[in-house]
Amino acid sequence: MIRIQQEAFDTGAEIAEISKGRTDIGAIVSFTGLVRDFNDGRNITGLVLEHYPGMTERELAKIEAEAHQRWQLQASRIIHRYGNLALGEPIVLVITASPHRQDAFDAANFLMDWLKTKAPFWKSEMTADGRTVWVEERTSDIDAARRWQK
């Protein structure tokens, strides 16, 4: 399941919902990305996230489908926010549910790595001195995504 939304989400509530009424799930892994107050030596006061409506949904659906192809997943959830985000707020949530922990761990890792290099979102940072800085891609993210290439 994929959701792209402006409003904040509650990681705990989302995890509870994914396993509600089910007894076949053995493992749930979740990753929550938060807005932190520093990046590349800059003091950050907030983020603005832009995305490409339409393409974002398509890319995330493809990434999720790929994870279900590669691992034994019973459920998954990707939530990504856009718009103005304050410090400490959640940006992104990935949840994977599987009978076995390794599939849940690996699939969650894969979903985040691929999302970061494929989903059309762009971050700009509000800096303490009042500037707006577009975030640049990281080589480490590209390398992380590359390890999942077949």
Binding site: I91, K116, P120, W134, D141
Partner: peptide
């Protein structure tokens, strides 16, 4: 047709 820089979400 869309033009954009490398993505930076997540």
């Amino acid at each position: 047709i869309a033009f954009f820089p490398p993505v930076t979400g997540g």
